[in-house]
Simulated scan of single mutants.
Amino acid sequence: MNYSPALLEGKLIKRYKRFLADVRLADDSVITIHCPNTGSMKNCLFEGHRVWFSTSDNPKRKYPHTWELMESDQGHLIGINTGNANALAQEAIESGVITELQGYDELKREVKYGAENSRIDILLSSQEGLKCYIEVKSCTLLEGNTGYFPDAVTSRGQKHIRELVTMVQQGHRAVLLFVVQHSGISTVKPAAHIDAKYADLLKDAIEQGVEVLAYKVAMSTTGGRIETVCKFIV
Rank of each mutant, 00 (worst) to 15 (best):
Leu77Asn: 01
Arg156Tyr: 04
Leu213Pro: 05
Cys44Asp: 07
Ile13Asp: 06
Ala199Gln: 10
Ala205Thr: 13
Val179Gln: 07
Ser4Ile: 00
Ala89Gln: 06
Asp22Ala: 12
Val23Leu: 11
Ala92Arg: 05
Ala85His: 07
Ala92His: 07
Ala218Ile: 12
Glu106Met: 04
Thr66Gln: 11
Tyr133Cys: 02
Tyr215Cys: 05
Leu20Gln: 13
Glu47Ile: 13
Lys231Tyr: 07
Leu141Asp: 09
Asn86Glu: 14
Tyr63Thr: 00
Lys42Asn: 15
Asp27Ser: 03
His76Glu: 12
Ser40Ala: 15
Glu106Asn: 04
Glu128Arg: 15
Asp195Val: 01
Ile120Tyr: 03
Ile226Thr: 07
Lys60His: 08
Ser186Pro: 04
Ala192Gln: 07
Val111Pro: 06
Lys189Phe: 06
Val210Gln: 02
Val165Lys: 01
Ala192Thr: 09
Ala205Ser: 13
Thr99Gly: 00
Asn81Pro: 09
Glu9Ala: 14
Val136Cys: 10
Ala196Ile: 12
Asp27Asn: 11
Gly224Ala: 11
Leu123Trp: 08
Phe19Cys: 14
His65Glu: 14
Val234His: 03
His49Arg: 14
Val188Gln: 02
Leu130Ala: 12
Thr221Gln: 02
Thr32Pro: 00
Asp121Ile: 14
Pro59Ala: 00
Ser118Ile: 09
Ala214Gln: 07
Ile120Met: 06
Pro5Thr: 00
